[in-house]
């Protein structure tokens, strides 16, 4: 499994043609305590760089963008029930959705871990 990162601070970890998507530790720390998450339903088509989910902290609401085009396979009900999981383990148990990728070629436009860490250092 390879993990890729976007400049909107999402990560996508790809296994076959399904990618698990979440927000990065950097993003979770910036947001602060997550109190509400809204996820797309399974079967919904999502488009690369278009808003796909919503994450809200005490202070503000933020969009989460789809890192790739595809179809939602599953949303993580655990973070809807317990939004604090996003802060506890953003790049693990706090994942948002699984997406069936329409075009794996889109992954080449994303950052790897080293590039993303360098990007965060400039933020």
């Amino acid at each position: 499994m390879t993990t890729y990162y976007t400049n909107e601070h999402e990560w996508i970890s790809v296994d076959g043609d399904v990618g698990t998507v979440g927000i990065t530790k950097f993003a979770a720390e910036k947001l602060g305590d997550v109190v509400f998450v809204e996820l797309p339903d399974a079967g919904k088509a999502v488009k690369k760089d278009a808003d796909m989910a919503v994450v809200e902290s005490v202070k503000a609401a933020s969009d989460v963008y789809a890192p790739v085009t595809g179809e939602i396979v599953e949303g993580n009900a655990a973070i809807v029930d317990e939004p604090a999981k996003v802060n506890e383990d953003p790049e693990g148990a706090g994942w948002f959705v699984k997406i069936k990728l329409a075009d794996k070629g889109q992954l080449s436009g994303l950052m790897d871990k080293a590039a993303y860490d360098a990007f965060c250092a400039t933020q």
């Binding site: 602060g32 305590d33 109190v35 902290s57 005490v58 202070k59």
Partner: peptide
């Protein structure tokens, strides 16, 4: 200061 290390929820 908007928040300190503990975060808004803990401060509240």
């Amino acid at each position: 200061p908007i928040q300190y290390a503990d975060g808004i929820m803990a401060e509240h």
